[in-house]
Amino acid sequence: DEVTIHLGDKTIRVDGLDKELLEILKELARRGADEEELRKEIERWER
């Protein structure tokens, strides 16, 4: 499953996201997290 996250004018595509992680990323994005913060969160989950 590829998920596309839209952040204002930026788009991040991620393969096979965990549903819980997806919810966390959506919440972070709502709070104004930037792409770098979201990537760090994704990397934390992948470990």
Rank of each mutant, 00 (worst) to 15 (best):
T11I: 14
A29F: 09
L28D: 00
D1W: 10
D15H: 12
E43W: 04
A29Q: 07
R47K: 15
E20R: 11
T11S: 13
T11K: 05
E37K: 08
E43R: 03
D1Y: 14
I42F: 03
R30D: 13
E23F: 08
E41S: 04
R44W: 07
K40R: 12
E36V: 12
K10P: 07
L22V: 15
A33W: 05
R39M: 15
E20N: 10
E27L: 05
D1N: 13
E35R: 03
D15P: 15
K19F: 11
E27W: 03
R39D: 02
E43N: 05
D15C: 07
E41P: 00
T11W: 11
E20Y: 08
R31K: 14
I42G: 00
D34M: 07
L17P: 02
H6P: 08
A33R: 02
E41M: 12
A33D: 01
K40M: 12
L22E: 02
R39A: 08
L17H: 06
R44V: 07
R31G: 07
E36M: 12
K40L: 13
E36R: 08
D9R: 01
R31P: 00
R47P: 12
K19G: 09
R13Y: 12
E35I: 13
R39Q: 09
E41T: 12
G16E: 10
L28H: 02
R47W: 12
I24A: 06
V14R: 01
L38I: 14
L38E: 00
I5E: 04
D1A: 14
R13K: 14
L21K: 03
R44C: 08
I42V: 06
R44A: 12
L7M: 08
I24N: 04
A33C: 03
D18N: 08
E27C: 08
L28A: 05
E43F: 03
L25A: 00
L21G: 01
E37A: 13
G32D: 02
W45D: 00
T4L: 13
W45N: 01
I24W: 12
D15R: 06
D15Y: 05
L17C: 05
G16P: 04
G32I: 00
R44E: 12
I12M: 08
E27S: 07
L21Y: 01
V3C: 14
R13L: 14
G8A: 12
I5M: 06
K26P: 00
H6M: 14
I12R: 00
R39T: 07
I5A: 02
R13D: 08
I12P: 01
E36W: 10
K19M: 09
V3R: 04
L38G: 00
A29G: 04
L38Q: 01
R39P: 00
A33L: 05
V3H: 11
R30E: 12
K19L: 11
G16K: 10
L7W: 08
R30W: 10
K10G: 11
D9F: 05
I5V: 06
E37T: 14
I24Y: 11
K40Y: 08
L25Q: 00
R47H: 15
A29T: 08
R44M: 10
D34K: 13
L22Q: 12
R44L: 11
L21F: 05
R30H: 12
I12G: 02
D18T: 09
R31V: 06
G16D: 10
H6R: 07
A29Y: 07
R13F: 14
E37W: 03
A33M: 05
E36A: 13
E43T: 04
K40A: 15
D1R: 05
T4V: 15
G32M: 01
K19D: 10
L17K: 07
L17D: 02
E2N: 12
V14G: 05
K26F: 15
E41Q: 09
R31N: 14
L25K: 00
G16L: 12
R30I: 13
E37S: 08
K40N: 12
I24L: 09
K26I: 15
I42D: 00
L21V: 02
R30G: 13
D9L: 05
L25F: 01
T11A: 11
I12T: 02
L21D: 00
G8I: 10
R47L: 15
K10W: 07
D15L: 03
A29E: 06
L7H: 04
I42L: 05
L28R: 01
G32C: 03
D15K: 08
D34T: 15
T4R: 06
G32F: 01
L25W: 00
V3P: 09
E23V: 09
E23P: 02
L17N: 06
I12A: 01
I24K: 09
K19P: 15
T11C: 09
H6F: 07
R47A: 15
L7S: 04
E43V: 06
E43M: 06
E2C: 07
E23T: 10
E37F: 06
L21C: 01
L21P: 00
V14S: 02
G32P: 01
G8H: 11
D34W: 02
D9C: 04
L22K: 06
E36I: 10
E46P: 04
E36S: 10
D1F: 13
K10Q: 12
E2Y: 14
L7R: 02
L25V: 03
D1P: 13
A33P: 00
G8D: 08
I42M: 06
G8T: 11
L21M: 03
A29S: 07
R39L: 15
E23D: 11
H6S: 13
G32N: 03
L38N: 00
D9Y: 04
R39Y: 14
L22D: 01
D34A: 09
H6G: 07
E2H: 13
R44P: 00
L21R: 02
I12W: 04
H6A: 09
E23M: 10
E41D: 00
D15W: 03
E41L: 07
E37L: 06
E23I: 11
R30M: 13
E2L: 11
E23S: 10
E2G: 15
V3W: 15
K40Q: 13
I42W: 05
T11H: 06
D9P: 02
I42P: 00
I5R: 01
R47G: 15
E27A: 05
E27F: 04
E46M: 09
E20P: 04
L38M: 07
I42R: 01
E2V: 14
G16R: 09
L25N: 00
L25M: 02
W45F: 07
L7Q: 04
A33Q: 02
I12S: 02
H6T: 13
E27I: 06
L7F: 12
I12L: 10
R39G: 03
K19V: 09
E27T: 06
K40T: 08
H6K: 11
D18V: 09
A29H: 07
D1E: 13
L17V: 12
L17I: 13
E27V: 05
G8M: 10
E37H: 06
